[in-house]
């Protein structure tokens, strides 16, 4: 199933539902940035998600790490002194599903028609690889801003998430300011009467 131009994989799905999936990173402390676009797959369908939260915890729930650095000069010294720590900790991240690519027969095309900015029919499979989308793909996905309506309903962190994902996507566009203006208008429409939320987001994405 490997593709030649695939970006490097960064993790593996360990928990999945229709609306979000959680993956464990291969590299400790290296989750994809908050608000960035990642993708995984379920059969022929590529599922896109926006990173909603990331966390580094102990591999065993209930066993919390303890402070070890009293005698160390620098933080890295702790890991050098106890190399087993890398194995006892894990970094997970959760992505909110924002769209999918209804692939047919696994043929990769440039045609945007196949991109859907709504939820896929089935959740991602456990142990599917997760990739960080490159700028080109990120730009391609954010051509349509329909995914913003999913982010708006993301709960507590929604505003932060929208702002972060737009900042991230803007960097992928040729004309970031134009993109942000367009996105800002879309958000303004989606939030309608919620002016305070709107201005909060706008202040976070202003160019």
């Amino acid at each position: 199933m490997g593709r030649i131009d695939s970006p490097p994989k960064i993790g593996e799905v360990i928990e999945a539902s229709t609306s979000e999936f959680t993956a464990q990173c291969y590299e400790l402390h290296q989750p994809p940035p908050f608000g960035s676009l990642v993708k995984t797959r379920e059969g022929d369908v590529e599922i896109y998600g926006v990173v909603l939260r990331a966390a580094t915890t102990s591999i065993e729930p209930g066993r919390r790490p303890i402070a070890r650095g009293r005698d160390e000069e620098e933080e890295e010294g702790i890991y050098r002194a106890s190399p087993q720590l890398e194995k006892l900790l894990r970094t997970d991240f959760t992505a909110l599903v924002v769209g999918h690519n209804a692939g047919r027969g696994g043929v990769e095309t440039e045609n945007d028609e196949k991109l859907h900015h709504y939820l896929p029919p089935r959740p991602a499979r456990i142990h599917s690889f997760v990739y960080l989308c490159d700028l080109k793909e990120s730009a391609r996905f954010s051509q349509s801003l329909d995914f913003l309506s999913i982010l708006v309903g993301a709960g507590g962190q929604a505003d932060e998430l929208i702002a972060a994902s737009l900042r991230y996507a803007a960097a992928a566009h040729q004309e970031p300011r134009d993109f942000l203006t367009r996105a800002g208008r879309e958000v303004a429409v989606l939030l309608g009467g919620e002016t305070n939320r709107l201005t909060t987001i706008l202040r976070r994405i202003k160019w």
Partner: peptide, 18 residues
């Protein structure tokens, strides 16, 4: 509570939407 109109970006976004 009018938004910060000194920022042209905010003005540009709000005009025609909100």
């Amino acid at each position: 509570t009018p938004p910060d109109v000194s920022d042209p970006f905010i003005v540009e976004v709000l005009c025609g939407t909100s």
